[in-house]
Design a binder for these strands. Structure first.
Lengths: 349, 349
DNA sequence: TTAGATAATTGGAACGTTCCAAATTTGTCA
DNA sequence: TGACAAATTTGGAACGTTCCAATTATCTAA
């Protein structure tokens, strides 16, 4: 059977041209005559030739491998799944293919997958760094001129581009909105306190509280895993307080969903008896009941932008690192109570 | 600057051995003396050498590229995100790296990404085929001896391995459970009717109904997109019926969550006023409120098994296609009402 | 010692492309 | 028709590995 793989030489032979010519048509070079191009293409189809990028890469720079890597810290979180989809959309249509790896917050895994990707000659990398990632971890990557775009989280001191959402403005706006609805005991729920993202969001919360002349109560800041289960745990603790909060802005949507679950378990109606605001605007946010009021960061859009930035840098050769903070906006739905009777009652005051 | 990349020849030169020896240590061959191995490894670290798999693949068969492909039809569905995580876990620890692509049910995209992956020399492919995929689409892949494992969906006539869950048994058990709780108007909600999976699940539903001597009412089968939004739409229609159902088994968990949302929008309490059973057991199923009773297929586990099967075939060289149907089990939580007072009431009858 | 084995190392030819410089064909114009 | 330019085509040398056959170093036992 035809175990042998068909190469550019086979094409050349049966088309009656030289391998160089075949290579030229493969690259859609304008130098080759239309007639020959047609003939060669016909033979390519006929013999079922498949291009060997590995061989081509050997002669070319890594920048032309047409592979980009994307490594995220938690693919089970829809935020990252959607981010990956966004990246996939733009790299696919640019003719690239993506290595996708999940680190589950393990620095070891992260190191391994990144080095494995390097061995395969990725043209660039989109990275949502695991907790504890340091500039040194990215050093050799940038030294060899491979563009890196950090998303979601920054790495202090690393000379790579980054694309993060405006965390501070997001929670700030959320808190203002709640305060505007008449809440004055507003909790901040969920998230790991040892991340930059947590601090940015927390700071936005605090600043908004000051802006609105509301007191900052430390017991209202309850951290937990940034997951649905973490949200349940956080609201449990919040409901144990002598003076309960009446509203919460959550570290992310996953936490917010957990908070809604926890409220229901206590026979409290989210959006009615307690206002909840999330962060991310994952796809379920709009179809959930109650629909989640949340700070929209458009994960897919972020993926798309990250990919575009990366491709730009790949094509530019050596590119300057740029730090983009992507603006966010509060999308008001039911879970904050703004759309209910209570809201109307409040606005009549 | 050190723009030049360091190769095996550089290592050889500075370690004072031949490139062949370096190659040998790279492959951890037992033929090389411990002392030389140590020296070479030291130089490798010192010079910051990175292995070039592309070059290596040129000399080796595709089976050794250490790349596998995984293409899914909807990465925004947590089921697939978790499947991908499962795959990632096992391929990562086998030293492989995965190309991940999302087709969004587009046959064109699917064709493109598969051929792109071939050009990059994948050792094998895990595929959740887009709707309408035909055996012909996989023909050239199997002809060139690249192992393929289909997951979730089969492709009729394709001589490739497959790993699907026992759809028939799953819905069958779900319906029996509901019937055992005293329901006799049980709906089947969601899913596209032009897929094999839909028919298998529907058939399980029908067979269980007959088993329990319950009538099959066609108006109780309501198809829709297999998504949260689709679930909302389906329950809306179900609630319009003259004779409403009192329970539903849903095409998948996403639909089931949508159904719960829709019920709440009608002031009906899922698990209390209406029993809901899902299919898949995605990670949110256990933390949602009410916790979702569902047919567990363990998406991560499925991903792991698919990856193991694929690796087995890659290592075996030319392997037989095998069709695995993975057994499922009903996990009873709150949403079917079995854990509530109603259940106790019923069981007293 | 030394023959005969065994252990360790090695040069060079592949692998399938791209790219360069050079060669060939075709076209144009006086 | 000849000469020059433009359009096409082409051989061969890379690229960084692996693998084979062959060589050299080291060990063993008489």
């Amino acid at each position: 059977m035809g175990k042998e793989r068909v190469t550019v030489i086979d094409i050349a032979r049966t088309a009656g041209v030289s391998k160089s010519t075949v290579s030229l048509v493969l690259q859609a070079s304008p130098l080759v005559n239309e007639a020959t191009r047609a003939k060669v293409n016909a033979v390519i189809r006929e013999l079922g030739y498949v291009y060997n990028r590995g061989a081509a890469n050997l002669r070319q720079s890594n920048a032309k491998s047409k592979i980009i890597g994307i490594v995220v810290n938690d693919l089970t979180n829809s935020f990252f799944a959607e981010l990956a989809v966004g990246v996939d959309m733009v790299v696919q249509s640019a003719g690239y293919v993506q290595f996708l790896a999940n680190t589950a917050e393990s620095l070891d895994r992260q190191r391994e997958v990144i080095s494995s990707m390097r061995e395969h000659g990725i043209s660039g990398l989109i990275l949502s760094p695991a907790r504890g990632t340091e500039a040194a971890d990215l050093k050799s990557l940038v030294a060899s001129g491979i563009p890196v775009v950090n998303v979601v989280r920054q790495v202090a001191g690393a000379k790579v581009s980054s694309l993060v959402s405006d965390n501070h403005a997001g929670t700030r706006e959320a808190v203002r909105h709640l305060a505007g609805l008449g809440h004055h005991r507003i909790a901040f729920l969920g998230g790991f306190p040892d991340t930059a993202v947590f601090h940015e969001r927390l700071q936005g919360y605090r600043d908004a509280l000051s802006d609105m002349d509301l007191a900052v109560h430390d017991e209202l800041v309850i951290s937990s895993a940034p997951s649905r289960a973490g949200g349940v745990a956080a609201i449990e603790r919040a409901l144990l307080l002598r003076e309960r909060p009446t509203a919460a802005v959550c570290f992310n949507d996953a936490v917010a969903f957990g908070v809604c679950d926890g409220l229901r378990a206590h026979r409290l109606d989210p959006g009615e008896d307690f206002a909840v605001i999330g962060f991310d605007d994952v796809i379920e946010a709009q179809t959930a009941v109650p629909a989640l009021t949340t700070v929209s960061v458009d994960p897919q859009g972020m993926g798309r932008r990250a990919a575009q930035l990366l491709l730009k840098q790949i094509n530019a050769g050596r590119a300057e690192a740029e730090a983009i903070v992507s603006s966010v906006r509060l999308v008001v739905r039911q879970s904050c109570g703004a759309a209910t009777d209570k809201r109307e009652r409040l606005s009549l005051l």
